[in-house]
Design a protein around this nucleic acid. Structure first.
Lengths: 198, 198
DNA sequence: TACACATGAGAACGCCCGTTCTCACACCGC
DNA sequence: GCGGTGTGAGAACGGGCGTTCTCATGTGTA
């Protein structure tokens, strides 16, 4: 009876505050490099509450990745949806990437970063990363299916190769130009498709 | 005078033995996950000798990356050099990748793995990774320059995007098929080049 | 045999970090 | 005012790991 239910809004506020802190710290410095103490300091939430909301660092890491996944795909979709012509919608992916790589806070793909750090020992992390990659590929598939591509699945995977490679190289060389080269590749792939009248 | 010079051959033998052990352990389990004790056990070399040959783990990591770089480029070059026709030499890159991804011990690109783990805090690691990527791009440039590409540098960067992306996705999805899609993309890029007679 | 010296095996040190515990304190219904 | 309960701040614990140290042992030389 005496059950002390904490205020629901307080709990969700805490979750958001902790996730916000973890997000910027994990993405900026890497997951292993950021301790729970640092997250507590940034979120300005006592350790005890932190552990009540996320019972372990592993769950916090997973929540970080899941939220990144949702937000990244929302942002990408919002950008591609600004165009109507199928080929333009495909190319818009690479414009969006170029904008992302150009942000001063760009630190590479949070999913491949996490995979390189933890994917080998943490199955939940590996699964979250795979889920994200599959979801991105699915989005590319819907874009490819709008074109005249005879095999949209194949086109989607080719586009995904370009996206993944450009992101990797942009991170390593710290320059957004790989997005331009990937865009040029995509344009050539699109030009090679059968014509709509054909 | 009493200087006790250890046998030169012994030293180089030790180096090779330690590097061999570190190589398979680092690539298989990640760098942070492998301690010096484990390397000592695998190399069957006492800690003291290990530290005499590599004064710190950081130097061992760098040597690991440098040797991987040399060997990977040697292997790739050996494979592309089996072909004479410029277009075939380019496509051979992706055949080689497919063979690599198909090895049971394939664990992704050791350089992007190391970059994700340590690239943010270790400038030597970041530099070794960038050097490797630049060297690969240079190799792709020589292949691109043999074709009719009007801008070999641009073609090389587009090919590099494909290589990096295919390797990343092969690691995450644990399947070599991304090499096939990257090869198909490369073929389309080559087909789009001006004809030799033109 | 006796000494000097390098070696091997592993303990020890120092630090970091995820997680839990301590304890003084503030708030609640009576 | 008062007992009880949850809270905040930080200490403490346990384990891992890079690096160094200890010390018994082995070897070569007189």
């Amino acid at each position: 009876m005496g059950e002390k239910m904490p205020d629901m809004d307080t709990v969700t506020d805490d979750r958001a505050q902790v996730l916000d802190a973890a997000d910027s710290l994990f993405y900026d410095h890497g997951i292993q490099a950021v301790g729970m103490d640092r997250i507590r300091d940034t979120a300005r939430v006592p350790l005890k509450r932190l552990y009540r909301v996320f019972p372990s660092k592993a769950e916090l890491v997973e929540a970080y990745l899941r939220r990144r996944d949702v937000r990244a795909r929302e942002a990408l979709r919002a950008h591609t949806d600004r165009y109507a012509v199928p080929e333009e919608r495909v190319l818009a992916v690479f414009d969006w990437l170029h904008g992302w790589y150009s942000l001063p806070e760009f630190r590479g793909c949070p999913f491949s970063n996490a995979f390189g750090e933890l994917g080998r020992d943490s199955e939940p992390v590996a699964r979250a990363v795979r889920d994200h990659m599959t979801a991105v590929r699915d989005h590319l598939y819907t874009l490819a299916a709008e074109t005249t591509a005879p095999d949209p699945g194949s086109l989607a995977r080719q586009l995904h190769n370009l996206v993944a490679g450009a992101t990797m190289l942009a991170a390593i060389h710290d320059t957004p130009e790989s997005a331009l080269h990937a865009r040029e590749s995509a344009r050539i792939l699109l030009d090679a498709l059968p014509t709509r009248s054909g």
